[in-house]
Design a protein around this nucleic acid. Sequence first.
DNA 1: CCTACCGATCGGTAGG
DNA 2: CCTACCGATCGGTAGG
Lengths: 196, 196
Amino acid sequence: MVETTRRQAIEDVASDLFRERGYAATSIRDIARALSVQGASLYAHVASKEDVLWGIVDRAATRFEAAADRAEAEAEARVPGDPVEALAAMVRAHVHVLTSDVGGAGVFVHEWRALGPERRSAILARRDVYERRFRAHIEDGIAIGVFAMTDSGLAASALLSALNGTATWYDPKGRLPAPRIADHLVDLSLRMLGAS
Amino acid sequence: MVETTRRQAIEDVASDLFRERGYAATSIRDIARALSVQGASLYAHVASKEDVLWGIVDRAATRFEAAADRAEAEAEARVPGDPVEALAAMVRAHVHVLTSDVGGAGVFVHEWRALGPERRSAILARRDVYERRFRAHIEDGIAIGVFAMTDSGLAASALLSALNGTATWYDPKGRLPAPRIADHLVDLSLRMLGAS
DNA sequence: CCTACCGATCGGTAGG
DNA sequence: CCTACCGATCGGTAGG
């Protein structure tokens, strides 16, 4: 468990650095310096630099997926078969993951290109599945007339881009607290889809 | 003029590479290889690698600004003092710049962090001014009741993030032609703001 | 977790 | 635009 903890500390520090400067512009020695150890010492805990990136990205992806699972289940329990309710819950969950771990989520959003070919396509496939869940609710809503007719694929992309932008500008010590940001983004999202 | 042309060819090739792999992950030799010359030969045309990035980013910023100028002027000429018209024109102009130069615009959107401190803050200041123009139209629209009441700053950020996402997924040979994408994004944007 | 070190690659210069 | 080369830094390993 000591190693798990140490590994987590490495990924936490790396998340912030990768988010600020990007993966390629951050060296193993930068990460080590932030932890007050020598660069080579990190290799007792991680196999490679890309391994650190993968740990961060995989963890963030898992958090987004789990939050969406819970959001869909709770929305379905509260108001069964309502696409508006489901989409609102998914948006709120997505923003919560973003704001509760800006480092990890920001790296997930922007730095997946730095992964090797197989991990990169694995994460793209997961992102695709995730985006389709939003699209499915949009299509359900269009079908029953609670959302305006639109290109559901483009709408889902635009929606997630709007939400993900939060990872770039969100500041925990900023003007708006995270729950207010989530409220606003839920409103903007539903309006964007023409929710009645 | 030969040099201007050559310089432009370097920036064009670099735009695509920076967009795909990121600035830090692209070497001067990568750019040179795409032009079938030796790495050192590029230094007859550019002062430094950051100089290439700056050329791309500055040019893209200028295109966004000029397109917004024209859009505002034309909207004002067509329907004076209408925030909805003005905002729709700005969105359309923004998407046009994005889709007509995915490389340059994509680098502008994502790689400004790689600039040195002074150029980085210069470009952030220009981005801020540009975003404020969107925000001003949003506030005008709220004031006269054609847009729903909302946090104008957050709405402007979310709107531009939604549009900028296009730079990530847009493919000139893709399913939707650029003008259709612009149409959809104008619709989504106006709806998001609650345009009556 | 450290020191010592590796081969490779980087941005960039000199001199033609 | 080329060859030849520079000092610095990179990710990573060996051996303790």
